[in-house]
């Protein structure tokens, strides 16, 4: 399989603190690739470099052969990278349907289109697609509800729907189950497995080993700003370096 995301020699420091050090990673097309590591290992820094929120000091990132670094977040999204945040980022005071129609519009119309005369309600195809996606994530009943009243788990589902409607080539998930109850976590795993069938490449950053081992095809372990191991879930479970750095023997 071809590589869809290639990270070469990325370095990033904050003042004297070296957050990322000579980071290299290749993500295969169609894979579910998990990045794990203890707190402060640099996982979120790496993700922020990928979506244009942070600019690394050196290094290159190629997405489908195109350089990513130095672009604005909206340009990176238009290239086909969608992102799920640690705390769900949604349009809180709009309805669920609006929340899903907006990304569909962004996909369809591009980064900017001046259309003050076209009614939203006239864009039947977008609304229909949005309703399909809401059905897929099990939120169709609440499509005219304002989002601020949703539970954490439902907000996460909605955020996933907002990403999925854009048919991204790569989906970045930053701790998709952080702060969730066991039941919500399991629901989210089921949902992610279900959308896995669409063949979207996913990079997951996660703390919860249960989530990682239920979803990932490949795992990379980040510790103190650099990758110390990479392999299949089985290989990672048996790697003594990983156990020392992260698992602490508890999962052995």
């Amino acid at each position: 399989m071809a590589a869809i995301l290639e990270i070469h020699d990325v370095n990033k420091s904050f003042g004297g603190l070296r957050a990322l050090w000579e980071v290299n990673l290749t993500v295969e097309e169609g894979a579910v690739h998990a990045i794990i590591g203890p707190n402060g290992a640099g996982k979120s820094t790496l993700l922020n470099c990928l979506v244009g929120r942070l600019k690394p000091d050196t290094g290159t990132v190629l997405f489908a052969g195109q350089p990513v670094l130095g672009r604005e977040p909206y340009e990176i999204n238009q290239m086909g990278i969608a992102r799920v945040f640690q705390t769900p980022e949604i349009f809180e005071d709009l309805t669920l349907l609006d929340n899903v129609v907006i990304p569909a519009m962004a996909k369809h119309d591009g980064a900017f289109r001046f259309s003050p005369w076209q009614r939203v309600s006239a864009r039947k195809e977008l609304i229909e697609e949005a309703e399909h996606i809401l059905e897929d994530v099990g939120l169709i009943e609440q499509r005219n509800v304002v989002c601020s009243s949703l539970s954490r788990g439902d907000k996460r589902r909605l955020e996933l729907a907002m990403c999925l409607i854009q048919h991204p080539k790569l989906l970045l998930l930053d701790e998709p189950t952080a702060g969730m109850s066991r039941a919500d976590t399991n629901n989210t795993i089921e949902l992610l497995k279900k959308i896995g069938e669409r063949g979207i490449t996913k990079v997951i950053i996660e703390h919860d080993m249960h989530v990682v081992f239920s979803l990932a095809h490949r795992i990379s372990v980040l510790a103190r700003g650099t990758f110390i191991a990479e392999g299949t879930p089985e290989e990672i479970k048996g790697d003594p370096k990983v156990q020392e750095a992260y698992l602490g023997g508890a999962h052995a």
């Binding site: 604005e72 969608a82 005071d93 609006d98 129609v101 907006i102 962004a106 900017f112 907002m162």
Partner: peptide
Amino acid sequence: MMLRAIKSNQNRLKYTGVN
């Protein structure tokens, strides 16, 4: 609709591909 989305969560809108 895009203007409302800016008011609601401009950050999300940027990561949704909107300039």
